[in-house]
């Protein structure tokens, strides 16, 4: 499992990369592997106001439909429209071209609730069976 050290992670398996005052969001390598081949991504609309831990996008794999939860509250500024034609980027490059959207956080203190890479790795280890 790949867990870049410079990112922050939510308990719903989203990652956040701080870019100045903005937060780029995607799903973790662990999450994309658990989902299997991604075939469709329902992106959030630009301008959508999201609150932390609420469902704001959907990822469909060959086997299931999963909600994506906002890791922080804020406004969606940008969505990755490459995923409309290439949803497989979520599998192939979850921390790069497979990003989902950019959010302008409204409450920077929420970032403190996210885990660092070590914290996320032990969280995943505790959650996994066996």
């Amino acid at each position: 499992m790949n867990t870049p050290a410079e990112l922050r992670y939510s308990t719903d398996h989203e990652w956040v990369r701080l870019e100045g005052v903005l937060a780029r969001v995607g799903i973790s390598d662990f999450a994309q592997d658990a989902l299997g081949d991604v075939v469709y991504v329902e992106l959030p609309e630009i301008g959508l106001k999201v609150s932390a831990n609420s469902a704001f996008a959907e990822i469909e794999s060959t086997k299931s439909v999963s909600d994506v939860f906002a890791p922080v509250s804020g406004e969606v500024l940008e969505a990755n429209d490459m995923l409309e034609d290439q949803p497989e980027l979520v599998n192939e490059d979850p921390y790069g071209d497979g990003w989902i959207c950019v959010i302008r956080p409204t409450d920077s203190s929420e970032l403190e609730n996210l885990m660092d890479a070590d914290g996320y790795e032990s969280f995943v280890a505790d959650e996994s069976p066996e």
Partner: peptide
Amino acid sequence: PLNFDGVI
């Protein structure tokens, strides 16, 4: 098995 390498 649901899949080995990947469904697609």
